[in-house]
Write a protein that binds this DNA or RNA. Structure first.
Length: 908
DNA sequence: GTAAGGACGTAC
DNA sequence: GACGTACGTCCTTACC
């Protein structure tokens, strides 16, 4: 991992594992389409990586190796090799042709040999080049390539920026590079159907290799293996082990008619690259291309790309430096901040602060490091020096998860204003389907930089748990947070540019960013929990659960773990021989729907349903909520503003958006959420908001008229569907209509409706058909949404929030239909999310304007919960109704129901 | 002991 | 498969 530059005299050959990177890029980058709907994520990732490898390694010779009918030769050894691999995903296939065009434009020779994988081509060429005195750099992320590493052959992973030479292999894996194939043969590869020896994992494999050197020696001296189980397993898998070694071993003697001179680096075709990158909308890459055609004529390798991200942060150690830093931020009018802290932001104290200024200067402010003998600044000095800058909205703040920053700063009495460049939020708006917007991932994808792992620093929840801050040197922490600040600073303009291009910038500026500080205040305020009330319910439920367990055992005829699905399935379907209604991936299902059907035949399923509902309430709410009460007696949830594919918020620790409401027992739990002394909880919720939005968006005359007359919407639908007068609609018809209304925005199917209503599928089909006859606008909208989405590759809300839909053109009908339903639903659910976000801002502004001390506490998708002093209750009710219902001017009125009371249950 | 994934159930 | 979006719990499995 030291100096990777080759000796100057030796020519360098770079061999790129093209096929490997295409798949890696495809999975690493979210579905990305051009404005014409051409998906390009794999093309972009591939192109970036190739250009980066060329830039970093500056080779004299280069080649791209592709797989070609790659399984065939190895399948002669083992027909099952990669047999369980599916072909490439549908949305990747068309990208191969684009990649070929990129390859031609950047003018890099291609190598492929029918029947062989890129691995073998590279192995062969590496040997050949080495013999001719070349230094070889293999560009790959695949650990299998370790086997060809030696003093002249090194690996480079441009995505992680990791170089590998023989000493690194020894250090990381404890084996020599040449022993990699023996190691791989022992542990096998489930994905490629390479057989493994049972009971041998990486650790045992390493030990065995260290003891015996290779697989053949191991087999010949098997009696020396100490553990009997391992010995037996190796003995009985002798054949498959040897076969596995053949499978994982790279060929190095393919008949390749290539001379090194053919691989001499050629200049890229700048004209062609420009055209292609423009077509593919690779704007960032476009900037790296030589500006004039003249440059293409020279043999110099092209000059590209920003410098790799490195920082030399100032370690702030005195009040004078603090003042200087704050002054520089004020002067510049912008600053990017990444806080170091541990635990939940609501309770955390700021340990240190990474800072990046617009001019590229970086700094780290150490405040509360546990290490002794570290020069730090006093927290009071920090607050004194930075208060003005932090609290001045005119100084634009950048970072990643500024809500967390805001919460942590609040614990030092600071109020963050001017949140502007939250790269997590900006990235989310660009692609809300993406699982995470971790800074490490954004930096890897967009800045080609691997950030060193650190705790609680926007690593994302998938990130491995790192050590505590105290286990890092302060210097590591300083560099780590400063480079994060700098990474965020550099990411922001690029993200904004893409937001502008996708017409999403207004959403960012006017909705999400203003919402951020409000969410921080809601979290910080928390909601009061009446633990005494909750524990009364808890005692009651504990007893009920206990009694129900006995009841279940009695009906089952024996004791078993009711919570264990396999055991439950055994009892129901094997012992009691009840019919299997449906199957999941792993076996018969025993969910509520199944149990309800079975309860006609046996008392046990009913008892289990009752048990489940009680134990769910107990474990999820009654046992858990009291443990989450903070020192102030209140519960502080965390809202996630960059979590859902539709634009909704989500809530965790605890999730306050799924507190029960339907059953009596559920409502008892809501009774424990209360207002402080002298206050009441005020709840305001949108009535039928999604159906109203459907009426507006689909512009359906009947539905609009119904809402304009404030009719009972389910009765009206029943009248329409069953062709009777509204007065004639009976309860059953209304129930059916309600279900249809409820399901229609979710892509309701005859089967789904039939299952939920317990009616025949053709009856359900008939009902849906009649619905669409009466509500022709809805039908038109649903069809149009899907067909437009198929063309553009995305769907959007009334306010332009976008969701890319990759699976609509899937050849798998099930997958495509699921995507259609999601596409139908997103504009409705997403617009509802937009509306309530706007409402939150409006209500908050109104509270402020009227100088009320009532505060917003919770948002539950269509409901806002406030805590108001008794004297303000009526004012808050009126204000909430007014602000929420006037937040948009639609073809139908927005109706808001409002209530107040001591507890959340009473407020409904 | 820990981590990952499935099944299930709560909300809107 | 079969109606959209979330999150939390429990359990099992596979690893240490």
């Amino acid at each position: 991992m030291v100096d990777t530059s080759p000796p100057r005299s030796a020519p360098t050959l770079v061999l790129i594992d093209a096929s490997g990177f295409i798949f890696r890029a495809y999975h690493a980058i979210p579905p990305l389409t051009t404005s014409k709907g051409v998906q390009t994520n794999a093309v972009l990732g591939f192109t970036r990586m190739v250009l980066k490898a060329l830039r970093e390694l500056k080779p004299t010779h280069v080649a791209l190796a592709f797989d070609k009918e790659s399984r065939t030769e190895r399948q002669k050894i083992d027909p099952t090799y990669k047999a369980n691999r599916e072909g490439p995903p549908e949305d990747l296939v068309p990208q191969f042709a684009l990649i070929r065009r990129v390859v031609e434009a950047i003018n890099v020779p291609v190598l492929e040999v029918a029947g062989w994988e890129a691995d073998d081509v590279i192995g062969t060429l590496a040997v050949k080049a080495k013999a001719e005195g070349f230094c070889v750099q293999v560009v790959t992320g695949d650990k299998d390539f370790v086997q060809i590493v030696d003093s002249d052959v090194r690996l480079y992973d441009p995505m992680k920026d990791v170089h590998t030479e023989p000493a690194d292999v020894k250090a990381r894996l404890g084996i020599e590079p040449g022993q990699m194939r023996d190691y791989l043969a022992l542990i096998g590869d489930a994905v490629d159907n390479v057989p493994k020896v049972p009971g041998i994992g990486p650790k045992t494999a390493t030990e065995l290799i260290q003891q015996f050197g290779d697989v053949e020696t191991l087999l010949s001296r098997l009696d020396e293996v100490k553990k009997p189980k391992i010995r037996e397993n190796i003995a009985s898998h002798r054949e498959s082990l040897l076969r596995a070694k053949q499978l994982v071993t790279f060929k190095t003697d393919l008949a390749l008619d290539v001379r090194m001179a053919d691989l001499a680096r050629r200049p890229l075709d700048a004209q062609r690259s420009r055209e292609l990158f423009t077509e593919l909308e690779f704007f960032a890459l476009l900037k790296e291309l030589p500006q004039q055609d003249g440059a293409a004529g020279t043999s110099e390798p092209p000059k590209e790309q920003p410098a790799p991200l490195t920082v030399t942060p100032t370690l702030v150690g005195s009040d004078a430096e603090l003042t200087r830093l704050a002054g520089a931020a004020r002067e510049a009018g912008a600053v990017t901040l990444i806080p170091a802290y541990e635990g939940a932001p609501f309770a955390a104290k700021l340990v240190g602060l990474g800072v990046a200024l617009p001019d590229g200067q970086t700094a780290y402010v150490p405040l509360r490091h546990a290490q002794l003998g570290v020069t730090q600044v006093k927290p009071e000095s920090f607050t004194a020096a930075f208060r003005e800058v932090l609290e001045d909205a005119a100084v634009k703040k950048g970072g990643h998860d500024l809500k967390a920053l805001s919460l942590v700063l609040a614990n030092d009495g600071l109020t963050l204003h001017g949140a502007h460049d939250d790269v997590e939020l900006l990235s989310y708006l660009l692609n809300p389907s993406r699982r995470e917007h971790a800074l490490v991932d954004l930096a890897r994808e967009r800045l080609y930089t691997e950030l060193p792992p650190l705790p609680n620093a926007a690593e994302g929840k998938r990130g491995k748990k790192d050590r505590a801050l105290a286990d890092h040197t302060v210097e590591e922490v300083a560099t780590g947070f400063a480079i994060r600040a700098e990474a965020a600073r550099r990411l922001a303009p690029e993200l904004w540019k893409e937001l502008e291009a996708a017409k999403l910038a207004a959403l960012a500026r006017d909705m999400e960013l203003p919402l951020l500080p409000l969410l921080a205040r809601m979290e910080r305020r928390g909601v009061l929990l009446d633990t005494a009330e909750l524990s009364r319910t808890s005692v009651k439920v504990d007893a009920a659960v206990e009694a129900q367990v006995k009841e279940v055992y009695r009906h089952a005829g024996r004791e078993f773990n009711i919570g264990s699905n396999p055991q439950l399935v055994e009892v129901l379907f094997t012992e009691l021989k009840l019919p299997v209604i449906k199957r999941g991936k792993t076996g018969p299902s025993a969910d509520q729907e199944v149990l309800e059907k079975l309860s006609e035949e046996h008392p046990l399923p009913g008892a289990i349903i009752e048990y489940r509902s009680l134990s769910k309430l107990k474990s999820t709410y009654l046992d858990t909520l009291p443990t989450l009460v903070a020192a102030d007696g209140r519960i502080h949830t965390t809202y996630h503003q960059a979590a859902t594919a539709t634009g909704r918020l989500s809530s965790t620790d605890p999730n306050l958006q799924n507190i029960p409401v339907r059953t009596d027992l559920g409502r008892e739990i809501r009774r424990a959420f209360v207002a402080a002394e002298g206050h009441q909880l005020v709840s305001a919720d949108y009535s039928q908001v999604e159906l109203r939005l459907l009426a507006h968006i689909a512009n359906d005359a009947v539905l609009i008229e119904a809402f304009l007359h404030d009719e009972d919407i389910h009765t009206r639908t029943a009248a329409e569907v069953f062709g009777v007068a509204k007065e004639q609609v009976d309860r059953e018809q209304r129930r059916v209509a309600k279900m249809v209304n409820f399901g229609i925005a979710y892509g309701l199917s005859p089967h789904g409706l039939a299952a939920r209503l317990g009616i025949a599928q053709d009856v359900a089909r008939d009902i849906i058909e009649r619905y669409f006859t009466r509500y022709a606008g809805i039908k038109r909208y649903l069809e149009e949404t899907v067909s437009v989405a198929r063309k553009t590759g995305y769907v959007e809300t009334l306010y332009g929030r976008r969701r890319y839909m990759a699976d609509l053109n899937s050849k798998n009908r099930g997958v495509a239909q699921a995507a259609e339903r999601a596409a139908i639903n997103m504009p409705i659910q997403g617009t509802a999310a937009d509306l309530i976000k706007k409402a939150m801002l409006a209500v908050d502004a109104a509270l402020e304007a009227q100088k009320l001390s009532a505060r917003m506490l919770l948002q539950v998708h269509d409901e806002l919960l406030f805590e108001a002093p008794d004297a303000e209750v009526e004012a808050v009710k009126a204000l909430a109704v007014k602000a929420m219902s006037s937040v948009a001017d639609l073809k139908v009125p927005l109706k808001v129901d409002v209530g107040a009371g001591r507890s959340w249950a009473d407020a409904h």
